[in-house]
Design a protein around this nucleic acid. Structure first.
Length: 438
DNA sequence: TCTGGGGTCCTAGGACCC
DNA sequence: TCTGGGGTCCTAGGACCC
């Protein structure tokens, strides 16, 4: 038998560019409102938590996830703006379109960062990869008026480390022959994929820098860190494992909504109202993507930050919260302990499928099903026109302080346009309301 | 790090089947 | 008295990311 020799595939080194917006949200605000340039700016007013801060604010010691109140204490004249996600995603789209002018292989990894594969473009532009990278960065910064940092190297992992290396407005190129010099200066915890737990483990094994890591052998890292450990080991050595994924994300594996409230409460109806709000929000998003959900996970977070969840499936995926509410209420009852204070409710929708309209199970009431689905669509239309949660579950009235559930009163100040549906609204309230027959 | 919200992926172990 | 072996699928939970 003749020996069959393996086919050798020769690969050229890739040139991967990582572009990362510097203080992206705050920079967008400064681009749109030039009078804010040079000033400390923070976004996140609507949640009372700093979502993003300009470099001026960072210099004063303001950090992410602190409260707006604390930020004000640090710097009384800090400019506080609500997050304007629509504008940010518009600027984000323009950033990626600049990158796509150079190459179609662009991956949008989040709103403020992405990768571009420049491999092979040297001939086209008759210049080095570094020069092409600098051009892309320059065009983004001048056209959009926002600062970005750029990193260029052989793999996604290296390119991302490179863009982080000098910030803001930095550019770092790490060609193959200097990788080890570069990794000598990178603490292992900075590598994307190495979190706090893995860092702690590696520290015990004497690995502090990215260079220590790549100097271990592959079986060692696989033994301690599994598949991901091996992948990162290769990526850090310049061997590409992770491909660029140019397709835009069009669907989800799961959709969740959680919200923390204070003060914590042990009041059952209040929790239920919070949870129903989460559920409705999650379903709104679900329907926007034309999906339906089969699995539901209900979470309660206790005062000491312990989470308890419970999970259950419907026999068929649904796009309508009405169909899920009975199940969700049962799960909540199962989880709820009267003497515990809770600070957060949450819902996760999973086992998502494309919503292909209605398919009836035996024994189901088709008329009711059709009504429920039409109700959901109508609510979407009304809410699209008049604002989110204009029509919402009557259960949510428990969220208005000083009304039902709190002191037995059942009158409530409503927005003129507030409509209600659901059992609670019909049964418990005596004021005029729009009744929707289900 | 005194703690917000929304995601993805990996893995060990159990259930089940032949 | 001793007690197969292997594959697949599913699940819960952990870890990580922005």
């Amino acid at each position: 038998m003749p020996r069959i020799s393996p086919i050798t595939i020769y690969t050229w080194p890739r040139a991967v560019l990582h572009i990362d917006g510097d203080a992206f949200f705050a920079s967008c605000e400064q681009a749109i409102h030039p009078e804010l340039k040079g000033k400390p700016v923070i976004t996140g007013k609507e949640r009372n938590i700093v979502a993003s801060m300009s470099y001026e604010a960072k210099a004063l010691g303001i950090r992410r996830a602190i409260s707006i109140w604390e930020a004000k204490k640090i710097c009384p004249n800090v400019v506080i703006v609500p997050s304007d996600y629509e504008t940010y995603s518009l600027i984000s789209k323009r950033m990626f379109s600049v990158m796509r002018r150079f190459t179609p292989t662009v991956e949008e990894s989040s709103i403020d960062e992405g990768y571009a594969d420049l491999t092979g473009l040297r001939r086209l532009y008759r210049t080095s990869y570094s020069e092409i990278a600098k051009q892309i960065k320059h065009q983004i910064e001048t056209e959009l008026d926002i600062p970005v940092s750029a990193g260029l190297s052989l793999t996604k992992t290296l390119a991302k480390l490179a863009s982080k290396y000098r910030k803001p407005r930095g550019f770092t190129s790490v060609p193959g022959d200097v990788i080890h010099h570069f990794l000598k200066e990178i603490p292992i915890c900075e590598v994307c994929g190495i979190g706090p737990n893995t860092t702690a483990l590696l520290k015990k094994k004497g690995v502090f820098w990215a260079l220590d890591y790549v100097q271990k052998n592959e079986s060692w890292v696989k033994q301690y860190l599994g598949k991901i450990g091996g992948e990162l080991w290769n990526e850090l050595r310049g061997e590409p494992i992770y491909p660029l994924v140019p397709e835009a994300k069009t669907t989800y594996d799961s959709i969740s909504k959680t919200k923390t409230f204070s003060p914590p409460t042990h009041h059952y109806e209040h929790l239920k109202a919070r949870l129903y709000r989460n559920v409705e929000s999650a379903f709104i998003k679900l329907r926007r993507y034309r999906l339906s959900a089969k699995r539901f996970t209900v979470y309660l977070r206790e005062q000491d930050f312990k989470d308890y969840g419970i999970q259950s499936d419907l026999n068929r995926a649904t796009p309508s919260p009405q169909e899920a509410f009975p199940l969700i209420e049962t799960m909540l009852q199962e989880l709820y302990r009267p003497n515990v204070l809770y600070r957060q409710t949450g819902i996760v929708l999973s086992r998502l499928q494309e919503d292909r309209g209605l398919q009836f199970e035996l024994f189901e009431d088709p008329v009711r099903m059709v009504s429920l689905h039409r109700l959901a669509r109508s609510i979407d239309e009304i809410n699209a026109r008049y604002g989110k949660h204009t029509v919402h579950s009557g259960m949510e009235l428990y969220l208005k302080p000083g009304t039902i559930g709190e002191n037995g009163r059942n009158t409530i100040p409503l927005r003129k346009t507030t409509l209600l549906y659901g059992e609670t609204a019909r049964q418990r309230l005596s004021f005029p309301m729009v009744q929707i027959k289900v």
